[in-house]
Design a protein around this nucleic acid. Structure first.
Lengths: 215, 215
DNA sequence: ACAGAACCGTACCGTACGGTACTGACAGAG
DNA sequence: CTCTGTCAGTACCGTACGGTACGGTTCTGT
């Protein structure tokens, strides 16, 4: 789907989407006008409508395009010990925080959330499907690799992943979306990632098999 | 602040805000027009501008008004054993999920997030300050009560509370804000609350003093 | 009873935006 | 050289919204 969409995009159209993303990041949804995009990208409005249908189509294309750039973390079957597994988890946590706190991600999430009330457009679904799925899947693959080697223990992979996500992100995402300055501190992401993984091991580490299963 | 604002609001103005909130819930920000509010509330636009200044003032008043209705969970010094403490935590978790998943809360959060890009309006700050503070404080009081009686153990209250929040909410809030139907399942909130508190005790329960402190 | 404030309903204005139509430049094909 | 399709730039249209002004009505205090 995303790949096919990408193949249909000419370099010119990609450049237009890039400028549109810049506009969105700089000024929010109010700044994302068809005339503004056309002017910033040096193209005509008519071309915009020809390529993307309408304004909603343009926004959907922006989401798909941006999502295609955020590549998931590939989990090749390289051998690793417990410490390397832990380092992988910390790296994932830090990457996740940095992706969620990035300018473009925040702007697109704000856009999709602002459109969520309109029953017509399903930008939210698109954002979750395109942006989050690959992150989720690579994380699940990482967890699965750790479980197979006995570093962690769980029965429900989905529940374990959601717990990890909650420990990492907490309420940071919403606070960043709300524009709270205190929430956006990239220099603290490393420490937060360490702490979250520490807690995750306390819950799902192999030595506490009897824990966190009863619910 | 909120109390003072509340005192300044006449019953008529409160009714107007109520209708405005209904409009916002029903149709999102696009439906929140001054003419629409005036028509729905049977008042004149002139009165709206007289009472609330401008559209931003109206939105701020809506947030403050709604926040004034969400009363925090009072923690009276009633005696409780470990099981009652756990039940209090589960109740808090379930209340939190139900508040965050409520129609009005979601609509107001969407509104504030949509306005977050505009440097002018600080609806996000207002929403956090008015809506979340009292929930946070009551939860911290509850945690503190549990710590004093030896049911849980932590050194940093803020960090313990944020962990509890993350375990409860995970990514549900953002997914609900994005309009994902699968995320909004109030019938599952009870089970989620139970599970989160279970995990919280695994991390901060008195029997695992040595855990979750090193970071 | 009377004055003044508060307020509803409506009309109005300026602006901004989404979307369409038109014109002219340019590039490749025959 | 000419025909044809693409696209930038611009002008245009209908609509919708924020904000203001005004006439008429109801409420209130004296």
């Amino acid at each position: 789907m995303t790949e096919a969409e990408q193949d249909r995009l000419t370099p010119r159209q990609r450049a237009v989407l890039e400028r549109a993303l810049e506009l969105l990041v700089a000024g929010g949804e109010r700044a994302l006008t068809t005339a503004g995009v056309a002017r910033a990208a040096s193209c005509s409005k008519e071309s915009l409508y020809k390529w993307f249908g309408d304004r909603d189509g343009l926004m959907a294309a922006m989401i798909a395009y941006q999502a295609s750039k955020v590549r998931g973390f590939a989990d090749n079957g390289a051998p690793m010990d417990r410490e390397r597994f832990r380092a992988h988890l910390v790296g994932f946590a830090q990457d996740l925080l940095e992706v969620l706190g990035g300018d473009v991600s925040l702007a697109l999430n704000r856009l999709a959330i602002g459109q969520a009330s309109r029953e017509k457009s399903r930008l939210g679904q698109l954002l979750v499907a395109q942006g989050r799925r690959r992150i989720d899947q690579s994380a699940r693959a990482l967890l699965d690799a750790g479980r197979k080697r006995g570093f962690i223990h769980y029965s429900d992979a989905d529940e374990a992943y959601r717990t990890l996500y909650g420990l990492i992100v907490r309420d940071l995402h919403v606070r960043m979306l709300l524009g709270e300055e205190g929430a956006r501190r990239p220099e603290k992401f490393a420490a937060l990632a360490e702490q979250a993984v520490e807690q995750f091991f306390a819950l799902y580490g192999a030595r506490q098999k009897e824990r966190a299963e009863t619910a």
